[in-house]
Design a protein around this nucleic acid. Structure first.
Lengths: 141, 141
DNA sequence: CTCTTTGCAAAAGTTTTGCACGCTC
DNA sequence: GAGCGTGCAAAACTTTTGCAAAGAG
């Protein structure tokens, strides 16, 4: 699997060690296109590496986030779930049922809107979030 | 104060009782234009009603949210904070420093974007979040 | 061999629940 | 008065920290 290898290289390049627990977490997240909570990662990764501890999952997620390989996703119901991060600014489309995630780029007038709202409000705009929620083709309606 | 009265009426109309603890929480949230966590609400409301318990704050927030008077706000750092809710779909602009909130309406191509992304992805789009983060005029840069 | 990383146990937070008393209506 | 609401205490969760032992390089 390509992305798994990339993540493992990235971990190594940054001076962190390659260990079985880390491989298990990476395998789980890098091959999923669903939003996963720390506990879900723990459960899935344990199928391949039963000795895995939840604490290690937290610590590994922290590193993967720091390396920019995963990003945190906020949803109405929870805010501690993660997905693969994409380069550049990408907006998220999340399935409310199964957590499947698609990315789409902001080829909309987002920059323009930020400038406009900034002027009107007197705020210095730094960042923005755009997320769409829906039901994916597999979950039906 | 106008909004306070509105909220109190709303509570009463829905068959809930008007009590001192609820008044304290309502006073705090309805007169603030800042994002407040449950604990912050607790601390502020206790200045007026020291006997207030944190549990009651949670229970009151739950009711105010249910009545649509407040809405939950998600930020990179926390996801359990609340602000006054506005009617209609409003987007948020949040000060990263002090939590001050402004609303702006989506006079952008949001509906259009939702249709377009829906078609491309095969998702049935249900909802969207658009939030801008920045630094307000009072916090400088 | 050295020093990072791990998993357990326990701590630290945060949110929810159970229950007897108090207060609104 | 009847019954909703409150505050305390304790439970339930989630996330973080301390530490001895295991394992990568």
């Amino acid at each position: 699997m390509d992305r798994v290898d990339h993540w493992l290289s990235c971990i190594k390049e940054h001076g962190y060690r390659l260990t079985a627990p880390r491989r298990a977490v990476v395998d789980t997240l890098a091959t999923s296109n669903h939003v996963l909570s720390p506990f879900e990662v723990f459960e899935l990764a344990r199928e391949n590496y039963p000795r895995l501890g939840l604490v290690t999952v937290y610590r590994t997620l922290e590193k993967l986030e720091e390396l920019g390989l995963i990003q945190r996703v906020h949803r109405p119901s929870d805010c501690q779930a993660f997905v693969t991060a994409f380069k550049g600014h990408q907006h998220l489309l999340i399935c409310q049922n199964c957590g499947r995630v698609e990315f789409f780029s902001g080829d909309d007038g987002m920059e323009e809107l930020m400038v406009k709202v900034g002027e009107r409000s007197g705020y210095r705009i730094k960042d923005h979030w755009l997320q769409l929620f829906g039901v994916c083709w597999e979950c039906g309606d």
